[in-house]
Computed example of a mutant assay.
Amino acid sequence: MKSIGYICLTIATAAIVTLTSCSSTPTAENPSAPGASSKPQGTEAVSQQSHSGHGGKPKININTAILSELDKFEAKLGVPALSNKIQANRPYGSPEDLVTKKVITQEQFDQIKDQVSIQEVKLQGEAKDVDYATKLGLMKGHLLVAKELLDQNQPKQAEPHIGHPVEEIYVDVEEQLNERKVKEFKTTLVGLQDLVKSNPKNAKVKTDFVASVQAVDGAIAALPTSQRSKPGFVLQVINGLLDAANSEYGAAIANGKIAAAIEYQDSRGFVTYVNELYQGISSQVSQADPEAHKAIETSLADLTKVWPAAVPPAKPVKTPEDVTKLVKTIEQNSQKVIDESSTKAQK
């Protein structure tokens, strides 16, 4: 996805509701978390305004959101590289500064103003854990698609996806990593990225890649096993990753063509990891709500076909609107299971 500017981001944790597009990651301070259709417990809004987003979803804090979240605006408005432009013009004293600073026009701002905020949301309890798991899930998705590209001898295409976890996400989750006493692994990711850039045929790439994946998995494992296997929790993470994938895919398509291969690949990686996560809880979901399980499973199968390979096809398999429809179906049915699980827990 985009530029190294993420390293300069202040640590934020957007309020997302799911265990991602880069395109849309939740951050503790940023109320624009993916999968906002889910409602994890423990979200403390700094202000009422900051937590009441368009369509019931949290707003996106344009001062702290990572590029994946900002891609929602890029996809909606169809403005290439808008995410980077928003980031480059920080800080903003008000949402209207997007117009004042000539980032977008007044007409464009009117289309997204209900989704824009400069307020922060602090996360606690389960909401904080969902945010943490979702960000790490986005890292995992990036690495999964990078591995595919490396296996296909495409190191130049793989390299950005190794960089994204550091450039876009690590700084945003670093505070939580420290709180959870997770060993620092930014150095591991940076080392792998540098090696793929300078000497992709080096045998050390494989061992360093394995170490990077293990580091992310280890960070995820900092959450209790019981929580990571709980359908209600995992589905929140899944919804967040799908929200990110949806935004990334929308940003990848322009004029009916796949204009941005990186965003296409980002979304593929996120959906690949979503499938992995759902396989781990599918039997439990099937027992809890067979109808919801069938809808989720069917929609996931259709969604996976959108990305036939890591290298984009000549023509998109589905339109962004088609992908949004599938994602909404999964999120709506996931929310049914999440709500049912929450009701049982309260009894």
Rank of each mutant, 00 (worst) to 15 (best):
Q335T: 13
K257A: 15
T188K: 14
K101D: 08
L144M: 13
E291K: 13
K39S: 09
K294A: 09
T105C: 04
V171Y: 06
T187N: 06
E291A: 07
V121E: 12
I86G: 03
Q154N: 14
V145Q: 01
R90K: 08
V271G: 02
H51I: 12
A65G: 06
P224R: 12
P290Y: 01
A219H: 12
V213C: 02
H293S: 14
T225P: 08
N199W: 06
Q119A: 15
S94Y: 03
D110C: 05
I253H: 07
V190P: 08
L300R: 04
I7T: 09
S226N: 11
Q284D: 11
L136C: 04
D172R: 12
K102S: 04
L98E: 08
P312G: 05
Q284W: 01
I7D: 08
E120A: 08
S341E: 06
K57A: 03
R90P: 00
G78K: 13
R180A: 00
V327G: 00
E44S: 13
P312M: 03
L77I: 14
Q227V: 10
D172E: 14
G232C: 05
N199V: 06
F233W: 07
S229D: 14
L123I: 01
E107S: 15
S342V: 10
G232E: 12
S37E: 06
A133Y: 09
A65R: 10
V79A: 10
P316D: 14
V130E: 09
V327E: 02
Y278T: 04
V171K: 09
V311C: 03
K101L: 13
A261R: 05
V99Q: 01
L235K: 13
N178K: 11
A15K: 08
S52K: 11
V182P: 02
A88C: 10
L150V: 11
A309D: 06
A36Y: 04
G218L: 11
P26Y: 13
P224A: 12
I4E: 10
T187Q: 10
G53V: 04
V213A: 05
A219C: 11
K257H: 15
L150D: 05
Q124L: 12
V317L: 02
P80L: 12
A244D: 05
K102A: 03
F185S: 01
F109N: 08
A292M: 00
T207K: 10
K147F: 00
D172K: 15
K122L: 04
K135A: 14
K344L: 12
A36G: 15
Q48E: 07
K206N: 12
L70R: 13
A310N: 03
A345L: 10
G35I: 04
D131Y: 13
L242H: 03
E44H: 13
A65W: 03
P316A: 11
I338D: 01
V17D: 13
Y170R: 01
S94M: 14
G125F: 02
A75V: 11
A292H: 01
